[in-house]
Nucleic acid binder design. Structure first.
Length: 584
RNA sequence: GUUCCCGUGGCCUAAUGGAUAAGGCACUGGCCUCCGAAGCCAGUCAUGUGAGUUCGAAUCUCACCGGGAACACCA
């Protein structure tokens, strides 16, 4: 980039200025100017002033004096329009036309690659979604899927290959309940077209019977014993119904635009887990308390820590497996299946201690990669009044219901706002808008903050929301279409740029930096916020600057800018799993 | 009891240790003969408390207050 080179030249000059004055140059760092309307870089002189032994007066005063001194020394470097020493900062403003052209040109050239870099190196594995078969998905699962998917996208965009994996809970009491209920009351029935829904309804029915009908509970226990006995008929039924459930999940993942590279099943790590526990007992790491007590690893005792790692329970006293039993072989399997740089777990914050224990256990077992396991902890989704979602208490919002409700609402709005669309277009747009609207609040806040779900917010298509961003994209698209769809081959920003278009170009140019930061910190919320700010900048521009009706010399440049904005909005939305419709 | 997370206008959220704390919702009043009003413009209102570090703190440290979570056989 031309401006990178100019910056380097500038930094060299600043360095010689600092050396001449005996100032610690390592403390000189360029940053963005917070005000809009013009662009450039700012150099704060406070650290230099504080370190200067020849300082006269207060630090801010001296910073201002230094800024002025450097300003006088630099004159006006090539590529800059003016310099300004104010409030202890030296602000260096770029020549607008060159900078604008450079930004817009590179966005148009890179198009849908703008903001991403090619991948290289060892892959990072990201485990997320992790649903239980035979059970419905609720909005808590949605946050996990959206977050995991977005983090995967971000890492990919920042140049890391990614392996997306899903760890499916395909065994346990919930499965037995479902199958027992099915055999007793729905034997031979086939799933409805909406498999997710059908499975969920039967699960709710089974769960209700289980808690209300002692006879059914009895039947389930007996059924479980037959399962443990390895009865072939039950195995066949399990495989069949699990496949139904997986097909249901696939339907939902397709709808959400998610995919996985590898599926791990709980059932495939259960036996290896039990074998590992025996090894751990033999090696002396684990203590076998059976038959009265479970098999444990007393981490605090082993490590000499106090109430930090606590006790990890790795096998029940009756010899049956626990979550932890299976987690250990799964972690090992991941690193042997792939040569991983990192193994990320997207799991809610309540499992932080458990994750910390697993990592430590694997470290004690001698796996060099254990430190490369990383828990991405996120907060749960609540209901108003700090009500935790629980299917047992019936305080749960099913994903299915939410998507249906949002789509219906979107459909009505699209019909009202844009009646000229065909039925097929209307449906497609409504779905994209509805999904965007329900995804956005899940991803736009920090991972560590609780999301409180309420229908009003989830179905609000105004304000800071995905539909607002999508709408900006649609309007940009609309201008380009009206202009004839042809892209100007040559354009220049040699005219007096309006503050709103300078601001828009500035926002567009920040995208790659935002992607890097979001990837590094595993924070998709930064991109969600950025996408909104970008859309807002575009709206400002849209309201203040004419494009199609502009004079010939301005028109080409503004069309190019609109196209660059359109591309950047679309790319940003894509990273957070939201589609950008052409029309709406 | 130990540990972790969160406290920013009436409500929800934003702000790589840096300049004037930024938006949304709600409320009030304006704007469709002008590239689409899911929009735009204008208005009122905020960093839990107290110390510390720093030239400079919403941000870092400590204490306290308030809310949530985890802590031996759920996942």
């Amino acid at each position: 980039m031309m401006f990178d080179r100019r910056k380097e030249q500038l930094i060299a000059k600043i360095q010689s200025f600092c050396e001449a004055k005996g100032l610690p140059i390592q403390k000189a760092e360029l940053r963005n100017i917070p005000f809009s309307g013009e662009w450039g870089v700012a150099l704060p002189f406070f650290p230099l002033a504080a370190a200067d032994r020849d300082r006269s007066g207060s630090v801010p005063q001296h910073a201002q004096a230094l800024a002025e001194a450097l300003k006088a020394e630099l004159g006006i470097p090539e590529g800059f329009s003016r310099l300004e020493a104010v409030n202890g900062y030296l602000n260096l403003y770029f020549s607008t036309s060159e900078y604008a052209k450079e930004v817009v040109t590179s966005v148009l050239n890179e198009s849908n690659r703008y903001g991403s870099r090619p991948g290289s190196g060892k892959p990072t594995m990201i485990e997320y979604s992790n649903p239980n078969t035979h059970k419905p998905l609720h909005v808590g699962h949605l946050r996990n899927v959206i977050l995991g998917g977005a983090v995967s996208n971000l890492l990919e965009a920042s140049g890391k290959p990614v392996v997306r994996v899903n760890y499916i809970g395909d065994i346990g009491l919930h499965v037995i309940k479902w199958m027992c209920n099915y055999e007793m009351y729905h034997a031979g029935e086939e799933p409805a077209a909406d498999k997710m829904r059908w499975m969920a309804d039967l699960y709710a029915e089974a769960d209700k019977r289980f808690s209300e009908d002692p006879a059914f509970e009895h039947a389930v226990r007996a059924y479980f014993a037959r399962w443990d006995g390895g009865e072939q008929h039950l195995k066949d039924l399990w495989l069949l119904t699990r496949a139904w459930s997986m097909e249901g999940f696939e339907q939902v993942y397709d709808l959400l635009g998610e995919h996985f590279d590898h599926i791990y099943f709980e059932s495939e790590v259960e036996e290896p887990g039990k074998l590992l526990v025996e090894d751990l007992i033999k090696s002396g790491l684990a203590e076998d308390g059976r038959p009265e007590n479970p098999v444990i690893i007393d981490l605090d005792k082993k490590l000499g820590t106090k109430e930090e790692y606590r006790v990890a329970v790795i096998l029940r006293s009756d010899g049956t497996s626990l979550y932890a039993t299976k987690e250990i072989p799964l972690a090992i399997m991941k690193f042997s299946d792939y040569e991983l740089d990192e193994s990320i777990y997207v799991i809610d914050v309540r499992q932080s201690l458990h994750m910390k224990q697993m990592k430590k256990v694997l470290e004690l077992m001698g796996y060099e990669w254990a430190p490369r396991m990383r828990h991405l902890a996120y907060e749960i989704v609540n209901l108003p009044g700090n009500v935790t979602m629980s299917s047992r208490d019936g305080t749960v919002v099913l994903l299915d219901d939410l998507i249906r409700e949002a789509t219906e609402r979107a459909l009505a709005i699209v019909r009202e706002k844009n009646p000229s669309l065909s039925e097929a277009e209307t449906r497609e747009v409504a779905l994209e808008v509805a999904l965007g609207a329900i995804k956005y609040p899940m991803i736009s806040r920090e991972n560590t903050k609780i999301v409180t779900f309420d229908w009003e917010t989830a179905l609000d298509f105004n304000g800071q929301s995905a539909p607002y961003i999508q709408y900006a994209h649609v309007r940009a698209n609309s201008i380009l279409t009206k202009a004839g769809g042809r892209k100007p081959e040559r354009f220049d920003f040699d005219y007096d740029l309006q503050p709103s278009e300078i601001n828009l170009i500035e926002m567009i140019s920040h995208f790659p930096v935002e992607v890097e930061r979001a990837a590094k910190e595993l924070k998709p919320s930064l991109i969600a916020t950025y996408a909104y700010d970008l859309a807002k900048s575009f709206s400002d521009f849209y309201n203040q600057c004419q494009v199609i009706n502009a004079s010939a010399e301005i028109r080409g440049a503004r069309l190019a800018l609109v196209d660059a904005a359109r591309i950047t909005i679309k790319n940003a939305l894509k990273l957070i799993g939201i589609k950008a419709p052409r029309i709406m």
